[in-house]
Simulated scan of single mutants.
Amino acid sequence: MGSLVLEALSKRYGSSTAVERVDLEVAQGEMVALLGPSGCGKTTTLRMVAGFIPPSGGRVLIGGQDVTRAPPYARDTGMVFQSYALFPHMSVAQNVAFGLEMRKVGRAERDERVMEALRLVRLDHLADRLPRQLSGGQQQRVALARALVVNPAVFLLDEPLSNLDAKLRGEVRMEIRALQQRLGLTTLIVTHDQEEALTMADRLVVMERGRVRQVGTAEELYEHPADPFVAGFVGRCNLVSGRLEGGGFRAESGALLRCDSTGAPADAALLALRPERIRLDPDPAGEARITAVTYLGAQTEYHVEQRGTTLLVTRPTPPLGDPMRRLAVGDAVVLSWDAAAVRLLPAA
Rank of each mutant, 00 (worst) to 15 (best):
Q194A: 15
A197G: 14
E220R: 06
A197N: 13
S261I: 00
M324Y: 11
A251Y: 02
E220N: 07
E276L: 10
H192I: 14
R243A: 15
E195H: 11
E195T: 14
G216D: 10
T191K: 11
P275C: 12
T217A: 10
G247D: 10
M207F: 13
R236V: 11
V234M: 03
D322R: 14
E223M: 10
V190Y: 13
A251E: 01
P319S: 14
L280M: 09
T262N: 05
R182M: 00
P284D: 15
A266F: 02
H303A: 14
V230H: 01
T187E: 06
L320M: 11
T300M: 11
E219T: 07
A266V: 04
A264W: 00
G242I: 04
T317E: 09
D202T: 10
G216E: 08
Q181P: 00
D322A: 15
S241M: 08
T262R: 13
L312Q: 04
A266C: 00
Q306L: 11
A264F: 01
L198K: 12
P284E: 15
L280C: 05
V215M: 15
G216A: 13
Q299D: 15
A266P: 07
H192D: 08
R209V: 05
E196T: 08
P323T: 02
A218D: 05
L257Y: 01
L198T: 09
R236H: 07
T294D: 15
R250W: 05
T291S: 15
A197F: 11
V206I: 15
T217I: 14
S261M: 01
A269E: 04
A285W: 05
A264I: 04
R277N: 09
G242M: 03
P228F: 00
Y295Q: 14
H192F: 12
